[in-house]
């Protein structure tokens, strides 16, 4: 498999200003030393609680967030500078699907204008072929071509999200960042949109970076999962690694938080959750450094990386 994108030691820090002179007194470490690679045609999941920095990583990759340090290599080229991105038409290849489908579509523009925007900016087409392309895209996302002349508020949440997807795939991108694309939708629509994204990914061979806090959704969508906590990766591995052999206490805690409908073993499950929580509280100082941040990750198998304290790597791997 070819490496599409390589992220090396990505850091995004936001300054905190305070005091009389409004000087920078501290930083929020939204993303702190993130490294991973994205291969062409594969889907990656990025999981973490609110505020763990997963959206920040997505925005930094797509170019909406200024990165503090580190490198983003796209096809071997460093794209961390806006001028480089503009010159190579980076966003033609890297697109984004937003969480809030209503606010991500301009209420004053028709669906045609919305979908045609990236086509106009990146692929110079004549009017007729542009129109044909928009009709084709609407067809791909399962909307009739009458939708072209309507406005975003005339559609339901699921339809709007599919319009957002149509816009994202308009320029045949190689990578799409999906920032919690279904968390604003109700469950039945979620499944519809997710299956639909999966099919598009398979048919068009797009890589997805799927950002979510919903472990069930991520399990359904992706084969490779990264767990994030407080701006750092704590565990990275395949779906099986993460779900069947979690190593980090935070991963275990997240997994135990998935609701189960299992009335017969309700008490046993409850006790198990309490035990995981107790373990988390107990080993917290062990798994996180004195600032409360996760340690760098170490490889424990071909596909599995875990953030473990530097002293007992072997113990963490042995479990």
């Amino acid at each position: 498999m070819t490496v599409l994108m390589e992220i090396k030691d990505l850091k995004v820090h936001y300054p905190i200003r305070s005091g009389f002179w409004n000087r920078i007194t501290d930083y929020v470490y939204a993303a702190d030393g993130i490294s991973f690679t994205i291969e062409a045609g594969k889907t990656y999941g990025l999981v973490g609680e609110s505020g763990s920095g997963k959206s920040t990583i997505g925005k930094a990759i797509v170019g909406l967030e200024k990165i503090t340090s580190g490198q983003i290599l796209f096809n071997g080229e460093d794209v961390s500078k806006p001028s480089v991105r503009r010159k190579m038409k980076y966003n033609k290849d890297v697109q984004m699907i937003f969480q809030d489908s209503l606010s991500s579509l301009n209420p004053k523009k028709t669906i045609y204008q919305i979908i045609a925007e990236p086509i106009r900016n990146f692929d110079k087409m004549d009017k007729e072929s542009e129109k044909q392309r928009v009709i084709q895209l609407l067809d791909i996302v399962g909307l009739s071509k009458n939708a072209m002349f309507q406005y975003p508020h005339q559609f339901s949440g699921g339809q709007r999200q599919r319009i957002g997807i149509a816009r994202a795939i308009a320029t045949n991108p190689k990578l799409i960042i999906a920032d919690e694309p279904v968390s604003a939708l109700d469950l039945s629509i979620q499944a519809q949109v997710l299956n639909f994204m999966k099919r598009i990914q398979k048919e068009l061979g797009i890589s997805f970076l799927f950002i979510s806090h919903d472990l069930g959704v991520v399990r359904h969508m992706t084969k490779n999962i990264a767990i994030m906590h407080l701006g750092r990766f704590v565990e990275l591995g395949t779906r099986e690694d993460i779900y069947n052999n979690p190593q980090h206490i935070y991963t275990k805690r997240l997994l135990s938080a998935i609701p189960q409908i299992d009335i017969a073993n309700r008490d046993a499950n409850k006790a198990k959750r309490a035990q995981v929580e107790a373990e988390y509280q107990e080993k917290r100082s062990h798994f996180y450094d004195q600032d409360g941040l996760a340690y760098p990750m170490h490889q424990i198998s071909d596909t599995h990386w875990v953030s473990t304290p530097p002293t007992n790597i072997s113990e963490g791997a042995g479990k």
Binding site: K59, V62, G63, L64, K89, N91, K92, V94, Q95, M96, F98, Q99, D100, S103, S104, L105, N106, P107, E117, P118, N121, F122, G164, R167
Partner: peptide
């Protein structure tokens, strides 16, 4: 600050 502005940025406007 709304997403449609971000979407326009990633659309190359």
């Amino acid at each position: 600050d709304r997403d449609y502005v971000r979407a326009s940025k990633t659309s190359g406007s």
